[in-house]
């Protein structure tokens, strides 16, 4: 159970990216965060695993306040939270295998990782993760040689290596075309349903939101403006969606599931 309470973030330059945001995510939930570009989605996700230090508020995860953790404790907590990024954030020059193995660093003693040694179990685990995501043919290629969809699978495999209880996905499909977007989302759904990994995922295609989310929250200028269940989103119309996104929201004809595909202009 993740409980975010009164979370605020003010950047050094005075930008108030989050203002008193509170919500909770029960275990096993597929929570989707929607909101315009600049509404604070990335900031919020990064506050949860403390890539960004929140200014105020609590982030309770199984009763522990992540916002207060430091050093070793913080790293131990991070091990259990995978993260997937819009731009994949792979080390482009390293092989797929090395990128995936990096997901295991939290469990690897420093001296071993310094000389690049991972345990046999870790390697087997990496092969399995890579296989599970269907990129076993690319295993020794450089990450940069892969297509965008394949790179994001490497990103997912890396997160899997952490044996995560929760995965934070920051617009995981925004750099992919719709077909690939679906395949990545299906993997996330699989991990959510089979492995019982809690998902917190920001998205901006309405059809994807409706198809995968079990709960949705909406951010607007750093303020939580919407909270809805699966049923709520199913019933959501383009107009309501636009309310959160503002009038920039536009329909992209021939969406993936019927004609619900709505893309928000400028969201990235």
């Amino acid at each position: 159970m993740l409980e975010v309470r009164h979370l605020s973030k003010t950047y050094a330059d005075g930008t108030k990216a989050l203002k008193d945001v509170s919500f909770s995510v029960p275990d096993g939930e597929f929570l989707v965060v929607i909101g315009l570009s600049g509404s604070g989605k990335s900031t919020m996700l990064r506050c949860i695993n403390r890539l960004i230090d929140p200014t105020e508020g609590e982030i309770l995860w199984d009763g522990v306040d992540l916002a207060q953790l430091k050093g070793e404790d913080l790293r131990k907590a991070r091990r259990k939270i995978g993260m997937i990024f819009q731009h994949f954030n792979l080390v482009k020059r390293s092989s797929v295998l090395k990128n995936v193995l990096a997901g295991r660093l939290g469990y690897t003693p420093s001296w071993n990782s310094l000389i690049g040694r991972f345990s046999a179990e870790d390697k087997i685990k990496a092969f399995e993760a890579i296989k599970r995501l269907g990129i076993e043919d690319q295993i020794y290629k450089r990450a940069s040689e892969l297509s965008g969809g394949q790179q994001q699978r490497v990103g997912v495999a890396r997160a899997l290596m952490q044996d995560p209880e929760m995965i934070l996905a920051d617009e995981p499909v925004a750099s992919l075309d719709p077909v690939l977007a679906h395949s990545i989302m299906q993997y996330l759904e699989l991990l959510n349903q089979e492995d019982k990994i809690t998902m917190v995922c920001s998205l901006h295609y309405l059809d994807l939101v409706q198809r995968y989310a079990t709960r949705v929250i909406g951010l607007k200028d750093g303020v939580l403006v919407y909270e809805g269940s699966k049923a709520d989103i199913r019933a959501m119309t383009d107009e309501q969606f636009k309310d959160i996104y503002g009038q920039d929201a536009e329909r992209v004809g021939g969406g993936l599931e019927g004609d619900l595909g709505v893309k928000v202009g400028g969201a990235a």
Binding site: G82, F85, H87, F88, N89, V91, K92, R93, L105, S113
Partner: peptide, 26 residues
């Protein structure tokens, strides 16, 4: 590219691991 640094940090890697895996290869 700060992306990989962020990603490796997010896995629970410590400072020296982050440097070795995200900075040095770059």
């Amino acid at each position: 590219d700060p992306g990989p640094i962020e990603a490796v940090q997010a896995t629970g890697a410590n400072w020296i691991q982050t440097v070795m895996y995200a900075v040095v290869p770059q």
